[in-house]
Each structure stands twice: as C-alpha cells, then as structure tokens.
C-alpha cells in the first residue's frame, strides 16, 4: 500500500518533469512574448509593493510595523506564493478542462492526473513574481533589525518551503472544488491571491476574528505571520505557544494531505458523473 503510494508519487514527479519540460520548450517558440509576460509578471507584483511604499510615504508605520518589517512580511508571502504558483498555478484551469472535455485526454495517459494537470501550461514567466518577492525580501533583510540566532536563521528557509506547501494545498483544494462547480474558479482567487495579499500586511492590522480564522480554520498564518513575528521578535495578536512558530512544515504536510483527499474525492466524483 505504502509502496504503491511511493511509486505513484515518483511516477507523478517524473510525468510532471516531462510535461513541464515540454511547456518550457513550447513557450520558447515565442521568445518576445515570453520576455514581455515575464516582465509583466514582475511588474504586476511590483506595483503591489509600490502601493505599499506610497502608503509609507504618508505614514511611518502600519499596525505598528515600519516599512522594512512590512517588506519582510511581503517578501516572504510573495516568495512562498510565487513558488507555489510557478509549480502548480495552472491547476486553476481545471474547470475549463472539464467543460471543454480535455480532461479526458489526461485520463487515458499512464500518469497521475494531478501531476499532468499541475504541469499543464507550466510557465517560467511566473518566475517574475518569485523574483520580485525575493528582491523585496532581500531588501528588507538589509534594513530590518533582527537579533539573528541559529533557530531564527534556520526558520527562514523552513518558512518559505512550508509556505509554498500551504499555498500548493490551497491550489489543489481549489481545483478539487472546481470538480463540483466548474464555473466557480474565481472562488479560488479569494484564497490564493487574496491569501498572499492578506499576508503582506501585519496581522495587527486585521480584526481578531479574521486572524483567528486564518490561524485555526484556513491556516494561512503559518505561511509567514507566525514564524515571521517570531523572527522579528514581535508578539502575535493571538496567545499561542512558541513552538507554533516552527510548525509551518507540519501544517503544510497536513494541508497537502487534506487537499489530496479532496482531490481524490473530486476526481472520483468526476469519473462517476462525467462532469
């Protein structure tokens, strides 16, 4: 059983690599368009940050956080989300594939559908978003005043990887939802793009109930809020034990497992109803 699952994961990763490689070569057929859309991706997310900088041209702090600290949150959120979007962002097209019937062509191939779909339209231009997030993060690190300890240092890559995992789970769960409601792909945007926007601002800005919701119900807070407030040495608006700052990878694994179950249920329902 476990062996079968491992084999499927290996098969999936392999198929993902094959298909993603094909898409990279396909986009290289239109180099000019590729350059333009990569820049566009970079610029789109950059304008987000311009808006924040403009806010700080009028104020010194937002929710008690000065610009470098907000940039720190922003950079972490944008990098984690950008990575997830780069890896499996195309899953939001599932509803369209169900409607036009092209999902069926994936089901007759000897590879997991999830992997094939995740690799579908793999686009390196999404590196634009990751790059922008990483740049802001890098800039913030030169400005922000952190008391670097070993655990804080270690937490940085763990946080980015865990955050990416949590956003991946959101993408998969969103796609699973589209099996039920093919036209409702926009709901997903509230959690993906909405989620990353939310996490770009300090948790102190938001109402307690909202913070509780994204901590306990949809645990987006583990992407950056909880670990980042620990790194910055700031209190989190909710009273939580210290170890929760390190829990991102665990939360990510749990979220991915749940999203995987939702995906399987969605695919099973598709195969029994045929749309």
């Amino acid at each position: 059983m476990a062996e079968g699952r491992d084999r499927r994961i290996i098969e999936g990763v392999r198929a993902y690599g094959l298909i993603a490689g094909m898409w990279v070569r396909s986009t290289m057929a239109y180099r000019a368009s590729f350059a333009m859309t990569t820049f566009g991706n970079f610029a789109a997310t950059f304008l987000d940050f311009v808006a924040i900088m403009l806010m700080f041209s009028r104020v010194d702090a937002l929710g008690g956080y000065p610009l470098p600290e907000v940039a720190f949150l922003y950079g972490l959120s944008a990098t984690s989300f950008g990575l997830a979007d780069l890896l499996i962002g195309s899953m939001e097209r599932l509803g369209r594939r169900v409607r036009d019937g092209t999902l069926d062509t994936l089901l007759v191939r000897p590879a997991p559908v999830l992997a094939q779909l995740a690799a579908d339209r793999f686009a390196l231009r999404r590196l634009g978003r990751v790059t922008q997030g990483a740049l802001v993060l890098g800039w913030s690190l030169t400005r922000v005043d952190i008391d670097w300890t070993v655990d804080r240092l270690l937490l940085m890559p763990v946080m980015v990887a865990g955050g990416c995992g949590i956003f991946c789970a959101v993408f998969v769960a969103g796609a699973a939802f589209q099996f039920l409601a093919q036209d409702a792909s926009e709901v997903q945007n509230a959690f993906t793009y909405g989620g990353t926007t939310l996490l770009q601002y300090p948790p102190t800005v938001f109402a307690k109930e909202l913070v509780r919701g994204v901590t306990f119900v949809l645990p987006l807070a583990f992407v950056n809020w909880l670990p980042a407030t620990y790194v910055l040495g700031r209190p989190y608006p909710l009273d939580l034990p210290r170890w929760t700052a390190f829990a991102s990878p665990l939360v990510a694994v749990a979220c991915c497992a749940l999203a995987g179950l939702a995906w399987r249920a969605g695919l099973r329902s598709y195969r029994s109803t045929g749309s």
Partner: peptide, 27 residues
C-alpha cells in the same frame, strides 16, 4: 487500474488533438 490499462490502449479523439501545438511533431 486506469494507468495500467493506459499502457495497453491507444485513444484518438477525432476533434481534439493530443499533439503539442507549438512544437515539431517529433517532440
């Protein structure tokens, strides 16, 4: 056993190509 079956069957959907649109056929 969908994936095991996939190795044994070939499927051609008349109106939906499974070929890669922008790449040479051989790819």
């Amino acid at each position: 056993e969908r994936t095991r079956l996939a190795h044994r069957i070939g499927v051609v959907f008349g109106q939906r190509t499974t070929l890669w649109w922008d790449l040479p056929l051989i790819d």
